[in-house]
Nucleic acid binder design. Structure first.
Length: 636
RNA sequence: GCUGGCGUGGCUCAAUCGGCAGAGCAGCUGAUUUGUAAUCAGCGGGUUGUAGGUUCAAGUCCUAUCGCCAGCUCCA
């Protein structure tokens, strides 16, 4: 007998070789029904897995991320089997489970369209109803290669060839279908009860744009029909929060055919933006930043010196002035460096923090453009910090702290990545190792979780990136902290040390919001357009019930405006309900309704966005309340 | 850039097999003077993204091109 310790610390004695599914049954029939796999001493295993020694066991269900992955991975095999039945000529590539579902990549001459989903789903249903057992077997590398060659699956052969020699290679068979796969899987196809195919897309073989583009079909799977319905409803709801839709509805910005990727900010969007920027300025001034503004167009020669010509040229725009080539800046760093170099600096001044809300232009691929999230012209809330090498850690920690302060203010969840040396980069391995270690040290000192993103650093240095989520859960890089030993050398930056000698400063490039445009996109989706009061383009909508009340409404407007609150009167000849509806649709935080009662008593009737009527109060207390919300930058 | 899908009044969408381009909202005019999410009536508004082609006839079919959407690649 062996001892199995369950998550509640209870211990079950079972026979050697008992399967995970059998343990689940012995715990309870409900758990047995919902079980999708197991976790044995931290390792994910399938339900058929025999337990051979004392261990800790957790039964995985759909509530566990690992359970979801097992179900969806099997679902991807079911889909691939169905597609092979309908299109035997399709060559299989890879088919993993992903966050919200699964996909399978295949190579086939005809292109899949959403019309193919119906027949494929019907075939999948047959496979599920047949409830084929899913059987794992292991082959040697040579056997595996021969097997897939015989089946005419060149992509599988390539995958196997890249596996290390001597390793056992697992295959899973369900009915007539056998796939190369590390698993784990469900014990039978009948357990894939609820699924739906969602979209088709092209995807490069092995994610490399030089390789052939395969066809990818995305789908998702759940254990309960209700969960699938909830998921599709969630997608519908997310569409309503889309900043591109809200940007239009709230008249914040537009992107037009005349300038793909070049957003226009409308008056409402500018109010929000200016509020955000002035707050940004205040917070940076408090922390010892000095603001600068550098030109958008600078001579090509500068970009040769900075390394951008060699490493970034394809993403840059150029123009000619008096026969000379100029570049439209894709980054603010060279300009900032030129400012630094206008003086000789003492160690006493360091760190020098030059901040710039700098407009940069980058030639992003047309297919990559996405509302305000990815554009070809954006404003970085940039800063370049020039410091002595021993100041790096402290300075980086201050930046991390500042980013955290900004994100927390809006209630954002974020995650952090450390990006290391990319292929096409400047400098020596030693410099990169030192810079990467410096950033790692700082991250370790904060104790925050972070993920390593190999090869994704800037061409001049490694970086810490802060990622925020949009309404659909896609993540976008916002803040970044990049450590740079290259540009100080290339531009021969110096400061005079205590010893009277010249020393080379280290440079940190950093943003907090990332791009003002992208950040506004994220903000819009986070709040579904119902911005915190301090950012709302219109903070108070005054609604006179009839035109008799207009005069009193105007007196109120004057007082509210005098208090520094953005307000307006809806004087249109419409019923009150109509005006309220419009203010609600526009997500105006407060409405003041004024009629006979208010005019007589000198009070205001207040309605709060989403909450409805909150009763009558004096104008003064209303103003105090709104100002408190604004000053505290409260989020609802 | 690549793969697939989609472009019809300001907005959201309709138009059967190729057969007279339509509705709601918004806008304008008038009536109505209203108590917490849409008052009523009338009016104006379109070269169907653009350029070609097929056809007696094109929103609809074909070609090219521009843009948008999803994904890939890339990135703040």
């Amino acid at each position: 007998m062996i001892k199995v310790t369950l998550p509640d610390e209870s211990v079950k004695e079972v026979e050697q070789g008992t399967k995970v599914s059998e343990v689940a049954s012995s715990i309870g029939s409900g758990l047995a029904r919902n079980a999708l796999g197991g976790m044995v001493d931290g390792e994910v295993v399938e339900l058929n897995h025999p337990i051979t020694k004392d261990c800790r066991l957790k039964i995985l269900t759909f509530d566990d991320d690992e359970g979801k992955l097992i179900l969806r991975h099997t679902a991807s095999h079911v889909m691939a089997q169905a597609i092979k039945r309908l299109f035997p000529e399709a060559k299989l590539a890879i088919g993993p489970a992903v966050d919200d579902g699964f996909y399978y990549d295949m190579d086939i001459d005809r292109s899949f369209t959403p019309e193919d989903f119906g027949p494929i789903e019907v075939e999948m249903k047959k496979i599920v109803d047949a409830d084929y057992p899913i059987v794992r077997e292991v082959k040697s590398k040579d056997e595996a290669i021969k097997f897939m060659k015989d089946k005419g699956e060149p992509y599988k052969v390539e995958l196997i060839e890249d596996l290390p020699d001597g390793e056992e290679i697992s295959f899973y068979t369900q009915g007539e279908y056998t796939d190369l796969c590390a698993g784990p899987h469900l014990p039978s196809t009948g357990m894939v009860k609820v699924f739906k195919l969602l979209s088709v897309a092209g995807a490069y073989w092995r994610g490399d744009e030089h390789n052939k583009m395969l066809q990818r079909i995305y789908g998702t799977a759940f254990t309960k029909k209700k969960d699938l319905e909830d998921y599709t409803n969630m997608l519908e709801e997310a569409k309503k929060r889309d900043h591109r839709k809200l940007g239009k509805e709230l008249d914040l910005f537009s992107i037009q055919d005349e300038g793909p990727g070049f957003p226009f900010f409308h008056p409402n969007g500018m109010i929000l933006r200016n509020e955000l920027e002035s707050f940004w300025r205040e917070e940076h001034a408090k922390r010892g930043y000095q603001e600068i503004k550098t030109p958008i167009i600078l001579n090509e020669d500068l970009w040769h010196r900075s390394g951008h010509w060699d490493h970034y040229k394809d993403d840059m725009y150029f123009t000619k002035i008096d026969g000379e080539t100029y570049a439209i800046k894709p980054m603010n760093c060279p300009g900032s460096i030129l400012v630094y170099n206008t003086h000789l600096h003492s160690y006493r001044e360091l760190p020098i923090r030059l901040a710039e809300l700098g407009i940069v232009h980058r030639h992003e691929l047309s297919g990559a453009l996405h509302g305000l999230m990815r554009v070809r012209c954006f404003t970085q809330d940039d800063a370049h910090l020039f410091m002595a090498p021993e100041q790096v850690k402290e300075e980086v920690l201050k930046v991390i702290d500042l980013a955290d302060y900004f994100y927390k203010l809006f209630g954002f969840d974020y995650h952090v990545e450390l990006s290391t040396r990319p292929e096409n980069s400047m400098g020596t391995d030693e410099q990169w190792a030192k810079a990467t270690d410096d950033l790692k040290d700082a991250l370790e000192a904060t104790g925050m979780d972070y993920k390593i993103n190999e090869g994704d650093g800037a061409f001049y240095g490694p970086k810490i990136d802060f990622h925020l989520r949009d309404s659909l859960g896609r993540t976008w890089q916002c803040g970044t902290i990049q450590l740079d030993f290259q540009m100080p050398e290339r531009f021969e930056l110096v400061y005079i040390g205590q010893d009277g000698e010249k020393h080379r400063p280290v440079m940190v490039h950093r943003t907090i919001l990332g791009s003002i445009e992208r950040f506004i996109g994220i903000l819009t989706e986070q709040f579904a357009g119902a911005f915190p009061v301090w950012l709302s383009p219109k903070q108070v909508q005054i609604i006179p019930i009839t035109d008799k009340h207009q005069k009193y409404a105007e007196e109120i407007l004057e007082s509210v405006k005098k208090a520094g609150i953005r307000a307006d009167i809806d004087t249109r000849n419409e019923k009150m309900g109509y005006k309220i509806r419009e203010a609600e649709v526009q997500k105006t935080p407060y409405m003041i309704i004024v009629g006979d009662k208010e005019a007589e008593s000198g009070s205001v009737s207040v309605r709060e966005r989403k909450k409805g009527d909150i009763g009558s109060i004096s104008l003064d207390s209303f103003i105090d309340m709104v100002k408190e919300k604004i000053n505290s930058k409260a989020i609802d």
